[in-house]
Computed example of a mutant assay.
Amino acid sequence: MPRFEDRTAVVTGATKGLGRDTALLMAAEGGRVVGVGRDAADGESLERAARDLPGEVVFLAGDVRDERCHERAVALCRDRFGRLDAYVNNAGILGPEGPLHETGLEAWEEVNAVNMRGTFLGCRAAVRAMRGVGGGAIVNIGSILSISADPFLTSYTATKHGVLGLTRAIAVDYATDGIRCNCVLPGDMETPMIVEYFAASDDPEATRAEMEGAYPIKRIARPEEVARAVLFLASAEASYVTGAELLVDGGLCAKAY
């Protein structure tokens, strides 16, 4: 039996990278998904990719910084599929790289607006929809930088710590409503964000080699590998899992040096 059959979900940041792979994996496992993103052309591509899958993906254009985006996503999921079972807050940005004393307020606020405000708004919309109707699952996408730090990624690190804290608070506050909230902590993945990071370096090949060499598994993740962890936490298989952080990092955080 497909692992997500007849279940419904909203996935933000669904047109690229981990979000796209998560939406398509859910549909491949029989789920019905509202995929939220900002680019209409990418949204059409996502819908085409899901066309022959057992489930369904419908695209919704929106910006996660806008609370109406999340309200519309919940409403569309309910109207189209009858209910909301899971909400995946995946949308995020890396932001500027540099020391704190050189970080501008505008750059700091942009990263916070997407990573923290966007996740908060998604969680709030999901909780409001799930309370009183049997609950559901919220999966937030954190990072290995939710529990560690990386030089000169102050804004990103701070927001990803915040995402984990928000996850734990929701898990504790709404457990009796049947709402589970968990956080997936990926390491580096083959996504447009990391490709742009490599391209911005002086020597992209050397930067990639250095990064991959730090992982015990000696490579960075494919997004679909992380999407499987998201699917698990969003599914009924994780019925007793809440307030947890699930590392999907190729062993990086287990290593001292």
Rank of each mutant, 00 (worst) to 15 (best):
R3I: 04
F4S: 12
F4E: 10
D6R: 14
R7K: 15
T8F: 13
A9M: 10
V10W: 11
V11G: 12
T12V: 07
T12F: 06
K16R: 13
L18G: 01
G19Q: 03
A23T: 10
A27E: 07
G30C: 06
G30F: 07
G31F: 00
R32W: 03
V33G: 00
V36C: 08
V36E: 00
D42Y: 05
S45R: 15
S45V: 13
L46K: 08
A50W: 07
G62Y: 08
R68T: 12
C69M: 14
R72A: 15
V74Q: 07
A75W: 02
A75L: 10
C77R: 01
G82C: 08
L84G: 11
D85H: 13
Y87F: 15
Y87H: 12
V88L: 06
N90D: 14
N90H: 06
A91G: 09
I93N: 08
I93D: 02
L94P: 03
L94T: 13
P96W: 01
E109N: 14
N112L: 11
V114C: 02
M116L: 15
R117V: 15
R117D: 14
G118L: 07
G118W: 10
A126N: 05
R128Y: 00
A129H: 02
A129D: 01
M130A: 05
V133I: 12
G134S: 09
G136M: 04
I138G: 08
I141D: 00
S143Q: 05
L145K: 00
A149P: 01
P151S: 09
P151D: 11
F152R: 13
L153C: 08
S155T: 14
S155D: 11
A158V: 14
G162E: 01
L164T: 01
T167E: 04
R168T: 02
R168H: 12
I170A: 08
A171R: 05
D173S: 14
A175I: 07
G178L: 08
C181L: 06
V184Y: 00
V184C: 05
L185W: 00
L185S: 06
L185N: 13
L185F: 07
E190D: 15
E190H: 14
E190G: 05
T191H: 07
P192Y: 12
V195N: 10
A199V: 01
D202H: 12
D202R: 11
D202W: 05
A214C: 13
I217A: 13
K218E: 15
A221E: 05
R222D: 15
E224V: 14
E225S: 03
R228C: 06
V230Y: 03
V230L: 04
S235N: 06
A236C: 02
E237K: 00
S239I: 05
V241I: 15
V241Q: 08
G243D: 02
G243H: 02
E245D: 15
E245K: 10
L246H: 00
L247F: 13
L247K: 11
G250E: 09
